[in-house]
């Protein structure tokens, strides 16, 4: 993927109001994969006693990253929407740490993109969550 296309993808993501509200950032994008970050934020805590982030915020990050991976596939769908997404929560994210997720579009047809993702915090050995989903493929070139 050319640097211009990466820049465009970054701008595309940061123009999404919900992503902007969560301060999500696209850090890497290539042919059928994307890497995104979600900084720790007290506003999106799910358990006030421990300060652990809410699963919903992690879902939002993984959903966006999976969509970006689907759109970055060389078959290049112009638009995409989530058909379904399954998230497994392995452990609580460590409070104060940025969540990083990498999504990969491992198969694409004329109508559907199959994507999976893993979310990590500073401990890159033990995933916080994994996701698998199907996305629509719209306006294929």
């Amino acid at each position: 993927m050319t640097p211009g296309k990466v820049k465009m993808a970054e701008q595309f993501i940061s123009a999404i109001p919900h992503c902007k509200a969560l301060n999500m950032k696209l850090t890497e994008i290539g042919d059928g994969f994307a890497v995104m970050e979600l900084p720790y934020d007290l506003r999106i805590v799910g358990d006030p006693e421990t300060g652990v982030l809410h699963g919903g915020a992690v879902s939002a990050l993984m959903d966006t990253c999976c969509g970006a991976a689907a759109m970055s596939h060389p078959a290049s769908p112009a638009t995409t929407a989530t058909i379904d997404l399954r998230i497994d929560y392995m452990r609580a994210a460590t409070p104060g740490q940025t969540i990083r997720t990498r999504a990969e579009c491992y198969h694409i047809t004329r109508s559907v993109a199959f994507v999976r993702a893993t979310a990590l915090d500073d401990d890159s050995e033990r995933p916080v969550a994994t996701a698998a989903g199907a996305f629509t493929v719209g306006g294929i070139k």
């Binding site: 999404i16 109001p17 919900h18 992503c19 969560l22 809410h54 699963g55 919903g56 915020a57 879902s59 939002a60 990050l61 993984m62 959903d63 966006t64 969509g67 929407a81 989530t82 997404l85 998230i87």
Partner: peptide, 12 residues
């Protein structure tokens, strides 16, 4: 609406 916001809403 963002799929993530919908996910957060349903999970909540």
């Amino acid at each position: 609406l963002h799929g993530g916001a919908i996910a957060g809403f349903l999970e909540t």
